[in-house]
């Protein structure tokens, strides 16, 4: 049984060695000539501008997700509309089912309030927004 633990110990030891020995070797023999250009952020040769810490509002996420779904829907709708006359009733029913599925999704996000930019149904807990209620929000919006 102790043999088994020995195997694990050797495994861990070799794991550490195989990481740190190459790092040590490169410390010893690799040339190290830093300069401002080399230390700059790699942006395909362009001068990097501004900070990478740009913050996006999290509300864009849901909007982008919904946009993506209906974007794809339109991609399917266009070729169907072009050959609408030749395809006949069956294709119309199929497309109606497809649209219905997506409209159910749209109704769901609408009901949840994800389409509103200002969220009315957020529950504010304790803290600096505790005095905000949904009634307050409604009167503002």
């Amino acid at each position: 049984m102790y043999r088994d633990f020995g195997t694990i110990f050797i495994f861990i030891f070799m794991g550490i060695v195989l990481v740190y020995v190459p790092l040590l070797i490169q410390k010893l023999i690799a040339p190290n000539n830093p300069n401002p250009d080399k230390l700059a952020t790699y942006e395909c040769g362009e001068e990097s501008e501004g900070s990478a810490w740009v913050q996006f509002n999290i509300r864009f996420y849901v909007v982008a997700l919904i946009f993506l779904i209906f974007d794809v829907e339109v991609v399917f709708l266009f070729p169907w509309a072009v050959v609408f006359n030749e395809l006949g009733l069956l294709a119309f029913i199929e497309m109606a089912i497809f649209l219905l599925i997506l409209i159910v999704g749209l109704a769901y996000v609408w009901k949840r309030g994800d389409l509103d930019w200002v969220k009315y149904n957020v529950k504010y807990g304790r803290g600096r927004y505790a005095n905000l209620t949904s009634q307050n929000n409604n009167s503002q919006g």
Binding site: A30, N32, N33, K38, Y42, G45, E47
Partner: peptide, 14 residues
Amino acid sequence: ALRVKKLYEQMADP
């Protein structure tokens, strides 16, 4: 040429 120069600078030595 400006990009060539910059990318050359960003390569690791040697």
